[in-house]
Design a protein around this nucleic acid. Sequence first.
RNA 1: GUGGAUGUAGCUUAGCUGGUUAAAGCGCCAGAUUGUGGCUCUGGAGACCGAGGGUUCGAAUCCCUUCACCCACCCCA
Length: 428
Amino acid sequence: MELITKAPKGTVDLVPQTARRWRWVEQALINEAELNGFAEVRTPVFEHTELFQRGMGDVTDVVEKQMYTFEDKGGRSVTLRPEGTAGAVRAMLENGLYNNGYPVRLYYNIPCYRYEKPQKGRMREFRTFGVEVFGTAEPIADAQLIAMGMSALQRLGLTDVGLQLNSIGCPTCRKEYHQALQAYFSARKESLCPTCLSRLDRNPMRILDCKSPVCQEIAAGAPKITDYLCEDCQSHFAKVQEYLTAMDIPFTLDPGLVRGLDYYTRTVFEFPSQSLGFALGGGGRYDELVEEIGGPPTPALGFGLGMDRLMLALEAQKTEFPEEAGCEVFVAAMGEAAKVKAMSLVNTLHKCGLGADCDVCGRGLKAQMKYAGKLGAQYCLVLGDDELAAGKARLKYMADGTEKEIGIGESFVEDYLAVSTEKGRLSL
RNA sequence: GUGGAUGUAGCUUAGCUGGUUAAAGCGCCAGAUUGUGGCUCUGGAGACCGAGGGUUCGAAUCCCUUCACCCACCCCA
């Protein structure tokens, strides 16, 4: 068989069994978020291109070369969102959500798009579960947000996920730090790898997490951001750590932790997975972003979890996902009249909220029974001319093969419930 | 954008140095059991061996090209 075309590069279909698992994980995250006072926001898949240019910083890799940007028929430049924060901020402002008082807490579970070369944990279409908090600069908000993230990951049973923490300061102290870094690395220009050399001007902080051994060695001796933080940033960072410790949340300080988007200030963090070799998600503060997008100066923070990566991590550690519920009653039928009756009984069961099914593929009785077994049906009801004439049929309990006679007329549902209450029931 | 690996039934794979009708397991369908699932047995359908070209009497197998997918780097979720 040859398909005329396959799913586009970097995209995947979540087939039923997979989709079930996703839904289970998503539900756990939603529960955790709502427990923490977050409410869902749904924003468009595409936004005006400038939102991302302004928001993420137009010299970032994502904005420079990874965006799905195109002109619509009206000549507007629009972009498939490469991340969730910018849209959430825009929606928060546009709908005046801040008028209900601070903090505003939002969560979203959305697909994002980046034009990348796909590999493990990196797709062109990927899903992010994100949370954002607006309107507080207090370090307690940072700690609480991080605590929620850790708690959600733990609730899912993830064991090899850590917490890496850093503060990259505010624009003022970061400026000084950049200068110090540039001075330090410029003095060692000859040894740096070519990529890092090019980073020297634009974003010297990125050199800190270069994978090249030589650069790592050099970076190890580089000035640390924490030594350059202004007093406010220092005490803010100290408080965040203090609060995390108070909640018994272990973390490792990583002065080299630099996030790829320009909007971050002060606290930044990631949830690295040891076995996968990359972070499941991360986030931090972005105290300047709301204003940058055109809103009032509003401190804010948030994080995103890569759903695809989260699923990889769960599968890697062989998480047991809940079993599929299966069909409760299968009504097998022989002959046209019985088939009609079966369809009608199934419909009745559905109206009562019971999971039921019957053959729709023209199978013989034996095949129908086999199919019922495959569906994991708990009960099977066989209808033929005899049963129609008698107005009764035998309800078979598939687990042990025992049968009980029940009426298939007026008393059908009542009789069925009487038997299934005794034996057990999947739905309702 | 750079580098590496892999493409054989729906799925997982065998097919060594080129030699008839390309094999197996799982899955699917059917029969054994003309009105009763799971277990067993038997049978069946299903593959132009990713595509194109070349070498050869002969190519799934060797060569070239291309496409797809995977992995790593870069970057990030």
